[in-house]
C-alpha cells in the first residue's frame, strides 16, 4: 500500500494519466479575470443607482466613494491576475462529475421548499435525497437517518434555543 487515495472513473477502472500531447489551452485565470471585470462594471453601474444624499448629510464622504474605490482595486487585481496568466498554459482540470450539479440543484430545492412544506419535511426529504444521489443504497439506514436526525435538530433548535421555524403545511399540527 503506497498511496491512500485512489480514484476510480465511472466504469470502475483506475483513472489513467493523459498520455498524449494536448493542444495549448487558455489559462482559466483569463476568462476568470474578464468575469471579475464584468462583475466590477455591473456593480459600478449599481452604485450610480444609489439615492441622492440628503443635503444635511452632504458634507461627509459620499456613499458611492468607498465601494467604487474597492471596485477599482478589484479591477486592478483582476488585470494583474490576467497579466500573470497571460501566455501560460492552463492546468489540466478534472471535469466536474454530474453529481456536483445535481447536488447543487438539490441544495437550491431544499432551501426553496422550506417555506412551503415546512422545515421538518424539507430536512427529511433532503436527508433522503442526498444520500441516494451520492450512491447510498442502504435504504433502511437512510429511512432511520431521515426520520430521526431532522426531528432531533428541530427540537434542539425550537425547544432549547426557542427558534420559530416555518412549518408550512404542518403549522396547525405543531401549534
Amino acid at each position: 500500500m503506497t498511496d491512500t487515495k485512489t480514484t476510480q472513473n465511472g466504469d470502475g477502472n483506475k483513472a489513467r494519466p493523459d498520455q498524449g500531447s494536448r493542444p495549448f489551452s487558455i489559462h482559466t485565470d483569463l476568462p476568470m479575470g474578464v468575469a471579475v471585470l464584468l462583475f466590477s462594471a455591473v456593480v459600478f453601474y449599481l452604485t450610480t443607482l444609489f439615492d441622492e444624499v440628503p443635503s444635511a448629510m452632504a458634507q461627509g464622504v459620499p456613499p458611492t466613494q468607498f465601494p467604487r474605490l474597492l471596485l477599482f482595486l478589484i479591477s486592478a487585481f483582476a488585470v494583474m491576475m490576467m497579466f500573470q496568466a497571460w501566455g501560460q498554459e492552463a492546468k489540466k482540470r478534472k471535469p466536474l462529475p454530474k453529481v456536483v450539479f445535481l447536488s447543487a440543484v438539490l441544495l437550491i430545492v431544499f432551501v426553496s421548499i422550506v417555506n412551503w412544506v415546512g422545515i421538518i419535511a424539507a430536512m427529511m426529504l433532503f436527508c433522503i435525497a442526498l444520500p441516494i444521489l451520492w450512491g447510498e443504497r442502504r435504504f433502511k439506514i437512510i429511512a432511520i437517518f431521515a426520520a430521526i436526525y431532522p426531528v432531533l435538530v428541530y427540537f434542539l433548535f425550537s425547544r432549547v434555543m426557542e427558534v420559530n421555524f416555518p412549518l408550512g403545511f404542518f403549522t396547525e399540527f405543531f401549534r
Binding site: 441544495l107 431544499f110 432551501v111 422550506v114 422545515i119 430536512m123 433532503f126 436527508c127 442526498l130 444520500p131 451520492w134 450512491g135 447510498e136 439506514i141 437517518f145 436526525y149 431532522p150 435538530v153 428541530y154 433548535f157 434555543m161 427558534v163 421555524f165
Partner: peptide, 17 residues
Amino acid sequence: TFLWPAVFVLAVVGAYS
C-alpha cells in the same frame, strides 16, 4: 453519504436561527 447531509441541515438551521 450521511455526514454531509447532516452538516448541511445544520448549516440551514444555523443560518436561519
